[in-house]
Design a protein around this nucleic acid. Structure first.
Lengths: 353, 353
DNA sequence: TCTGCATATGCAATCGATTGCAATAACAGA
DNA sequence: TCTGTTATTGCAATCGATTGCATATGCAGA
């Protein structure tokens, strides 16, 4: 264990060196370029079948593996896709990521996921991804600050948004139909006889926050509920604590709502906290609806009625969009909208009245 | 500043082309190698300060960004780390990942996370990562099949395990002290007066499953509980459904346990399901203890008493170990063990007796 | 036998950055 | 003035794979 274990300086001729295309060529008595062709599906037709088979066999024999860095350098495409996430730990994100990654993997791409919250400026993170030569970017970041989007456009980098849209609608996106989701929630409550429905809105600089709020207001209006009976309080972040605070403000109003629609499940859990703090029962005193159907909200007490969004499909759609963009950079910006679904559980109950 | 401002030979001077080291060199009237040195902290001392500053300025001016693929090709190090995860959607994983990624990012590495469950053989996934030239691998995979580990060792690839250990203890690892965690759980229940404690064990081919079970049995024995009063049922997978089945078997025994320790929180939720199915109350009839303290188990009903493990620290430790391995491939294999902590909530209650 | 064309393979440049070595300049000491 | 250092910078090879072009071979048709 304490031998002179430092052969590191300079080269090493041990067997540990990874075989290259040259090794395969030497073993087959052909030129490296022939090996390259034989091993590339697209160019394989240029080399004699017999030779191609021999090369393939030799490659397998010595365990040859393509060096993506070299290939990428030559071809200018890395096969890498960057994903900017607001917070990996957000339970809503993994399904999206999984959808993205699966689709991209199948096409030979690898994904680099970067958690924005943790470190440095978004700008800088994007630059680092560019340095790595990513072929495209999926943005799921919380706050779509213009400069980041602009930065990507400047770099002529294919970009798509997932679970978000940008204000100008410049970029292709895959997202849930926020307005439709809120409509499901509101109409469900109205059908249950609720007439005073509050909304704990998410951050308004995030598209989901703004759009869900707009959806709530539109649906409430369409249901004939006056604005004074459909109060809105904004949570500054998508966290349980912020949801609690906003809900407390809602409950402190003169005419207390009999139901609360939260902009997402985390906020809804915060609403639970607020109700507990005020000694109110859910759904007995106040019904609650969440949004996203994140894992385990069926286990909380009471099980949360929520709007399920198609997270995995969303990721997959985003991946598809991105690949299309990469193939044809000028392609029209498409906005894929996924239909949400209402999952009724125990947190909503009819209002006898 | 010479006259030969060669108009980019064949290429068009569109803004879309990423500037290279050559462009910077041309702009400064120096050789590309000088630019390389000026821009590399380690080699900067070789170039005159005045020139270095000029180069730096020019690089900023035209927005030069290092091409990692090219650098990696030349230096043989990609700055990429692969992370093999059993399932990104497992709520226990993100904190670990976050710990890994943060630490590695700070050192200039990027991480490629691969979800094993979704696609293809683990073997193949590892090969793809190797093709990408990863400098090291973090394995958090469910089943440590020997061949994968061997495969990595064959490739002379630095590898560390996280939240797992391999049977032979060959590889460095960062994991929670499973035995200590079970001891906390058992002693807590014993202190509450429980005398018949069951265990819903995890898959035995996974280190956490086997070690937690061993820890349970050792602690039970030390507490003076006879084996017939401390039955064990194995769940084949770490899922809620499997936990339910195992718990049902436990409850069907002649002498029903008054408390159940589950090998993880997901299984514990399955235990809740089983209790509900049998019309038993928790904690009234049966107390339940989980393991991992995954997000939101404090929100379920009743809030779950569980063993919290230091997931983020675990990820960070794994990253540290890996970097050490990369720096000194022969380094001794270290096993970092993190202390767990018991979080007492509402699912455990004293046994009056 | 010669021409023509297709097929199969070799050759060499190239992608962008790094680095050992060589070359030059600047300067000190004698 | 000559020699020996040292500080800078240029040169060119290199990493591994790809690809346009040139070459060689084979075969068919005239």
């Amino acid at each position: 264990m304490k031998q002179t274990l430092r052969p590191a300086s300079g080269l090493r001729a041990t067997a540990s060196a990874r075989p290259t295309i040259k090794d395969v060529a030497a073993r087959c008595g052909v030129h490296p370029s022939t090996v390259s062709r034989a091993l590339s599906p697209a160019m394989k037709h240029l080399v004699a079948t017999e030779v191609a088979d021999r090369i393939q066999a030799a490659a397998n024999a010595i365990g040859y593996r393509l060096n993506m860095a070299a290939k990428g350098l030559r071809t200018g495409r890395s096969g890498l896709i960057g994903v900017l996430a607001p917070d990996i730990a957000d339970p809503g994100f993994p399904p999206v990521l999984s959808g993205i990654a699966d689709h991209l993997n199948a096409e030979g791409y690898a994904t680099i996921v970067v958690d924005v919250g943790s470190k440095g400026s978004e700008q800088d993170l994007v630059d680092r991804l560019i340095a790595r030569g990513v072929d495209g970017l999926v943005l799921a970041t919380v706050s779509l600050r213009d400069d980041v989007v602009k930065h990507c456009l400047d770099a002529a980098l294919p970009v798509v948004l997932v679970n978000r849209v940008d204000a100008a609608g410049q970029l292709p996106s895959a997202a849930s139909d926020d307005a439709a989701g809120m409509r499901l929630a509101v109409e469900h409550l109205v059908a249950l006889g609720h007439k005073r429905i509050g909304h704990v809105a998410g951050p308004q600089e995030i598209s989901t926050g703004a759009r869900r709020r707009a959806g709530f207001e539109a649906s409430a209006k369409d249901a004939g509920l006056p604005a004074r009976h459909t109060p809105v309080e904004i949570a500054e972040t998508y966290t349980r604590a912020a949801g609690r605070e906003a809900a407390l403000r809602l409950l402190a109003r003169r005419t207390r709502p009999t139901a609360i629609v939260a902009a997402n499940d985390l906020l809804a859990l915060g609403v639970y906290d607020a109700l507990a703090a005020r000694g109110l029962a859910c759904p007995g005193d106040v019904s609650v609806v969440g949004h996203n159907d994140m894992p385990f909200v069926d286990m909380v007490s009471p099980p949360l009625t929520t709007v399920r969004i198609a997270q995995r499909d969303m990721g997959e759609a985003a991946a598809r969009l991105l690949l299309a963009r990469i193939a044809a950079p000028g392609a029209s910006r498409e906005h894929i909208v996924l239909a949400p679904e209402l999952i009724i559980r125990g947190s909503t109950i009819a209002r006898e009245h």
